[in-house]
Amino acid sequence: MSISVPDKVWWKPIDKEEKIWLFLAIIWMAISFLWMPIYHFIGKQNPSNESYRVTREQWDTLTDDFIKKYQVKDASGNLVTMNDIPVVHPPAGSDVYLEGRAWKWWPVLELEKGKTYRVHLSAVDFQHGLSIYPLNINYMALPGYDYIITMTPTTSGEFPILCNEFCGIGHHTMVGKLIVK
């Protein structure tokens, strides 16, 4: 019985079926574990290994410069915004900045298909959760950390970005946009 004291000697040999199960389970656990490092070599989707501490001032300077330099202009030379958020078209393969703030993703990025970008992700007030629909790509944006995700968009279109970490009462209004041309 499970609720009474076992026989004096309970360290007994294991039966054949149990041995088979134990063997299968250990093999599967080893494979499922080893698969993760292996996927770093053979897979094209791996979590980033690059992040730095960043102060609010450093981050603000970086993003302001970035937006000033690359904000899109229309035919008559006016700066383009989308719902009051600057639209930015950085050169292919460059460093790009994406900021979570209550309750916007800032700015709207325009990327090119098949080009590789270093996306710097951070937040300035609360923790935010980057979530790109419909790809279901999710990363945390934390204040004080510059999290660099090296990203190659392989499909084009307009991709809404949601926030999926609770960041205050307006959390559900926090939607942004990523455009891939």
């Binding site: 897979g43 989707q45 979590p47 790509i137 990203m151 190659t152 392989t154």
Partner: peptide, 12 residues
């Protein structure tokens, strides 16, 4: 799940 993962953008 890894098959589904392989269909999204390339991420490092």
């Amino acid at each position: 799940n890894y098959k589904y993962l392989a269909s999204i953008w390339e991420l490092r």
